[in-house]
């Protein structure tokens, strides 16, 4: 089977491999898996106070297509707003890398990973705001 040049490039020179502190409030972590292949994919984003994705890292154990898909997504999301990044579709990933039909699910995994990372960031930042607002009345009560 002939794989596309872009796929091989991302597989041989993966971008943005690594980890961030998953407990940091400006970091969102998405962890997803495809049990049929034994794949595990972790994708993390660092979000600025303006809601722009400043940095992205990934760690994937799986086939070449899964590694290339996650590498590509980390490259794509940098500089994007959360809403823009959330709009990334697996079909765009599959098309860009020219994934063969049997490897389409690898692009689904990457889409699910970025969506999970965004959801995790939103949940955390929402919680951080709630803590702030919740602490205000408490301060008032203490006075």
């Amino acid at each position: 089977m002939a794989y596309g040049e872009k796929l091989i490039d991302h597989y041989e020179n993966p971008r943005n491999i690594g980890s961030m502190d998953k407990h940091a409030t400006d970091v969102g972590t998405g962890l997803v898996g495809a049990p049929a292949c034994g794949d595990v994919m972790k994708l993390q984003i660092k979000v600025s106070s303006e809601g722009i994705i400043e940095d992205a890292k990934f760690k994937t154990f799986g086939c070449g297509s899964a590694i290339a898909s996650s590498s590509l997504v980390t490259e794509w999301v940098k500089g994007k707003t959360l809403d823009e990044a959330e709009g990334i579709k697996n079909t765009q990933i599959a098309q860009h890398l020219a994934l063969p039909p049997v490897k389409i699910h690898c692009s689904v995994l990457a889409e699910d990973a970025i969506k999970a990372a965004i959801a995790d960031y939103r949940k955390k930042s929402g919680k951080a705001q709630n803590v702030q607002t919740a602490s205000e009345p408490a301060t008032v009560a203490a006075q």
């Binding site: 962890l31 997803v32 898996g33 495809a34 049929a36 595990v40 760690k59 154990f61 699910h105 699910d112």
Partner: peptide
Amino acid sequence: GQETVDDEEILVHAM
């Protein structure tokens, strides 16, 4: 089938 999963504990362990 081809669906993805998000069971954190199992995936953290697998990784």
